[in-house]
Amino acid sequence: MNAWGLERAGRGPWGPGLIGSWALSGLGGLLLTAAFPRTDWAWIAWVALVPLLLAVRGKSPGEAFQLGIVCGLIHYLGALYWIAYVVGHYGGLPLLPAGAILFLLCAYLALYPAVFAVLAARWCRRPLSWLVGLPAAWVALEFLRTFAVTGFPWAVLGYSQTQSLTLMQSADLWGVYGMSWLLVFANACITAPGSGRQRLVGWLCLALCLGLTAGYGRQRLEQIRALEAKAEPWPVAVIQGNIEQASKWDPEYLSATIERYRGLSEQAVAGDPRPRLLVWPETSMPFFYGLDPEPSARLEQIIQSLGVPVLFGGPSATLVEGRLRPLNRAFLVDAAGRGGGNYAKRHLVPFGEYVPLAKLLFFVQRLVPAAGDFVPGTSSRPLILNGERVGVLICYEAV
């Protein structure tokens, strides 16, 4: 009888029983969530996968898949619970359908830790596969989740360490996925099967990776501080009008919105140091700039009076197959009130700017009222302001 058969028969030394395994998987989901806001216990990420990795030992692929689903569901429901409120409040759905959408989203996301759990169950008696394969598998699954279907990059494990500036400097080499790899490698070392010598090799490799990561981070921080000391200050003022979403798209509220941003910007430009650029939020100007003549001219006059360039967000439109479709743009207008280029958001928010699988989810409304679903932009070129390059990311793209 193989190891899985022994475990099911209750005679195997590997892995807890059924109830213990489910409890461990649930605990793993809670620990993963605790590594992110609002608790922000970043250190927990270094051990958060330990319960799941212990739970899947000696389990069949089917059993491991179920345990991964439990862990993933609890984690994502805990991390993304607020989506039900957003979909209900802004999408006009009752609580039950909004909760169902959240559950379906989390069930989909839970498939990724479920596949990871299956691989862990298969490799639980192969020390090399465990130590090398598990971190690589987790990162591959996170990368797939970031781009598959509509792409959902939220709660990538490496993001839990953003408060550690030293460790996170390595992201300029391999992105957040490098930090995810390091975290999973630490969890794999804690739970590694095999002889004491094999586990020792794993711990030595972990210590080496941590040392190199921390050393690189300290060096990069020193370089950045040196550059900051030499660089000419470039003050930027960020303006947040805090307009209620339900009011922002009401045409009768447009004048009040523009005036609020004018007043806040006047306060900012009167400060010391005087900003060289004002940044207003995504869709802060809820009209089609350049296409709606009256509010466009009014906005340009305001920017002229401020005497400072403004980068602001607003909807735009483009022809797609003979039809006008909206874009989510950032516009740069110089101090003279002249257009200085624009950028169209390329990674749109599902259910916010378009409804994925619209034929299936025909009952779901977009959270942003507009004339049809938004379409993504195609260019990532930076904008140019007085010879300086200004890179733009809008909302979801910064994740």
Rank of each mutant, 00 (worst) to 15 (best):
G72R: 09
V368D: 04
V399Y: 13
P295Y: 00
W4L: 02
L383K: 12
P51S: 05
R381V: 13
L357F: 13
R381E: 15
V333D: 02
W22N: 00
T146L: 06
W22G: 08
V47S: 11
Y216M: 09
D40P: 06
N242I: 05
S180I: 10
P382V: 07
G339L: 09
G339E: 14
T318N: 00
Q219K: 13
A9P: 01
R38H: 14
F116P: 04
V320E: 15
G10F: 12
E266P: 08
L27C: 05
V149F: 12
S305H: 12
G72S: 09
W130Y: 10
L102S: 07
S305G: 11
W154P: 04
V349M: 15
E282L: 05
D172H: 10
G196R: 04
A34C: 11
V392E: 08
C205Y: 07
A84E: 08
R220T: 09
W130E: 09
Q267C: 04
A64I: 09
E142S: 08
F331L: 08
E259Y: 00
P281V: 07
L182M: 14
T191Q: 13
E259K: 00
R346I: 09
A344N: 08
L254D: 01
V368H: 10
Q161A: 15
A171T: 06
A3F: 10
A55Y: 11
G91M: 13
A140S: 07
A137C: 12
T283C: 06
A398C: 03
H347L: 05
G58Y: 12
W14H: 14
L311H: 12
S296F: 04
A207P: 02
G158M: 07
E397W: 11
A148I: 10
P37D: 03
A398Y: 08
G340P: 11
L18N: 10
Y354C: 07
L93T: 13
I302P: 03
G92R: 14
E397D: 08
I394N: 03
N242E: 15
A335F: 07
Q161D: 10
V132G: 00
H75P: 01
F185P: 00
L183K: 03
G387L: 14
A330P: 02
P37T: 02
L348M: 06
F287I: 00
A371F: 11
N187M: 01
N342F: 12
L212P: 02
G88C: 13
A23K: 03
E282I: 05
Y81L: 14
A237T: 05
V86C: 05
L183R: 02
W4E: 12
G372I: 02
P51D: 02
G88D: 13
P369M: 07
R298N: 03
V115R: 00
G78I: 09
A79N: 04
L144C: 02
P127C: 01
A137F: 10
Y177E: 01
D250S: 06
H75R: 08
F374A: 03
G372C: 01
